[in-house]
Structures are given as C-alpha cells and as structure tokens.
C-alpha cells in the first residue's frame, strides 16, 4: 500500500536506518463521531519509523481526537489505526506497551517530586527497583531536571514540568512517542529547548507524532499532515508543501482593503483574499509584482511584504480560510 494521500510529492526521507522497516503508525479511513458532530471524517496516513510527524491544524480540527484514538483512550467510530502492527482497538495492551504518551494537560502529580513521578510511572509499566531508579535519573539528567529531582512538581516552571512529562513518556523506552501540543503554554525559550529535545529523539531513532496548532512548529517535523474539520487537507514535507505552488505571498495593508481588493483582482486577474485586514495575493514573481502594484494604486498601499509561503499560507490556500481566525467549534469534545 502506498503512503501518498494528497498530491504532495513525498520524497524519501533522509538516511536514518540501515534497514528498511514498515511504517510505525498506519491510519486508515479513520472516523470518529461525537453525536452529530464528525470530529474525524475519514483520515488516512502513515508515519515511517524514525520520523517526526506533525499533525497541524486549528483547535477543533480533529487533532486531539486522533491523538486520543492513537493513545487507545478513545475508540474510533469507523476505520482502523495501528501502531507498530498492533491495532488500537483489537490489541490496546500491546499498543500501550509500545508507545509513550505525553498529554497536553499535565499528568505529573504536583504533590510528588519529579523523581517520584517517574518511579510511579515506571511501576505502571512493570518496571521497579534499582534499574527503574537508574533509568529515571538518567532521563532527568538528560532533560536537565536532575538537580530538581527532589522538588515537588508544583515548584517547577511550565517548561521544566513539560520536560518531566516528556521524560515520563520516554521512561519505558518506547519506540513511538505521541506528544499532544507539546509547546502549548511554553514561553519562546522553553519552546526552543523543546525543539532540541525533539532533535535528540530523532537521533535516537524514536518515531515521534506530535500535534500542534502553532504552524511554525510544523516546520521542525519531517512531514506534516494539516487537519481541518476532520479531514487531512495537506500532507507532505513542510518545505515541499510550502514550495508546492511555486509562488510568493504578497501581503498588502491598505486603509480601504475591500475596495483595493476588487481593484487588484480586476487589474491583475488574480484571486485576492482578505484575511485579518490584510490583502493576500499569490504571485510567481512577487518582487516584480510589487512595483506594478504600488504604481497602479498610488496612495492606497500602506505597506507591502513579499514572503515565501509558510505552512500557514498552505492552510489558507487549501481551505480558503484564515488559520488564526478559525473560531473554536461550539461543541468541544468532552473533557478536552
């Protein structure tokens, strides 16, 4: 079976392993309904072993539902999902042994120390005694929390606590790590550190699936799937997705954007979108377009920027909607 889902070119990823292995995660035609609402409306993709795979999309796009299904905490309505060959519905115990899960909400007990949290976690995986303690200290060391190992988790900053969460998820040495919104609530410094942690995991050959609603974060994944309204609207390497259209994105600020939009559309025969008060035009040679634009509409253009498309632009192109403005759906999942 082929992994290609969308028109995106999927190139072979960088050399990581000497052996060719099957996909780590296989999701086929996955659907999940909450009453009337379809949180997932038929999603299929594969995650290769050793790759960092990003699930991107606005809140309510279906990321968390998909995450919970993969973590065996929510059954799908239809379709299948398997991790390292184990079906999440038929054999949840095998899936649970194979994966590490890091939730968005803190799962560390704030009245326990970092070390204790890891020890308790180890017991759930059948680890115990001196080997468990050694492994726990190793991980705390690796994530730079070792010197705070004896402090209650409630005393740790958000960034440190997130690192303890990740250490917790990695404790039993899973081949696949699922991370739900790992950077949510972190300051920029902590996010940079998180990026380093992910790089380290990649070197170890751990397969990582992470969800995020920060589009720029998708860029650090080997491949991303953009989820919107329960469907994958784009899938591929971030750079391929961004380069797909071969255009530049020209953003224009104007006092009267509505009027200018119609004027530009008429003169240049190009679709112009108005998002967040900015006009947005995709042109293949953006730098040549700018002088024409400014000369054609003297005094109406306040500012112009030309940029290569980002994943956010990919989202806009695929859905016709602004990524940031997407309102949260009225009926969120229970307990999310």
């Amino acid at each position: 079976m082929s992994a290609a889902i969308t028109g995106c070119q999927v190139e072979p990823s960088r050399v990581q392993h000497d052996t060719v292995t099957g996909p780590a995660i296989v999701v086929r035609a996955l659907e999940r309904e909450f009453g009337e609402r379809k949180a997932l409306a038929g999603v299929s993709f594969e995650v290769r072993e050793g790759e960092i795979f990003g699930l991107l999309g606005p809140n309510g796009g279906g990321k968390t539902t998909l995450f919970r299904i993969l973590a065996t905490l929510l059954p799908p309505t239809r379709g299948t999902a398997a991790i390292l060959g184990h079906d999440v519905v038929a054999d949840p115990a095998a899936v649970r042994r194979a994966i590490g899960v890091v939730f968005q909400a803190t799962s560390t007990d704030k009245k326990l120390t970092s070390l204790e949290n890891l020890i308790y976690q180890g017991h759930m995986y059948g680890m115990s005694g001196a080997p468990l303690r050694k492994r726990a200290m190793e991980l705390l060391e690796r994530f730079g929390v070792a010197d705070r190992a004896g402090e209650y988790c409630e005393k740790l900053s958000g960034g440190l606590r997130r690192r303890v969460e990740i250490a917790k998820g990695l404790l039993h040495g899973p081949k696949v790590l699922l991370l739900d919104e790992p950077s949510a609530g972190l300051d920029p410094g902590a996010r940079r550190e998180l990026r380093e942690v992910l790089e380290g995991l990649k070197k170890d050959g751990t397969t990582v699936l992470l969800t995020t609603h920060f589009m720029e974060e998708g860029a650090m994944a080997d491949r991303v799937a953009i989820l919107d309204r329960g469907l994958i609207v784009a899938l591929g390497k971030p750079e391929s997705l961004c380069a797909e259209s071969g255009t530049d994105v020209v953003s224009i600020r104007s006092r009267d954007p509505g009027k200018l939009r119609d004027a530009i559309a008429a003169k240049f025969q190009a679709p112009v979108s108005l998002l967040d008060g900015q006009l947005r035009v995709e042109r293949s040679r953006g730098h040549e377009f700018v002088p024409q634009l400014v000369e054609s509409f003297p005094g109406q253009v306040e500012a112009v920027t030309v940029a290569k498309p980002t994943l956010e632009d990919v989202f806009v192109r695929k859905t016709g909607r602004s990524f940031v403005e997407e309102p949260a759906p009225a009926a969120p999942k229970k307990g999310h």
């Binding site: 560390t108 917790k168 307990g335």
Partner: peptide, 15 residues
C-alpha cells in the same frame, strides 16, 4: 484526574 491529569497517563499505560 481521569480526563486530564495523572490518571490519564495511567490509563494510557499497559497496567
């Protein structure tokens, strides 16, 4: 604890 918190990671474990 069940929906978000300690118990959630316990439920995701093979215990």
């Amino acid at each position: 604890d069940r929906r978000e918190g300690f118990l959630q990671s316990v439920l995701a474990s093979p215990a």
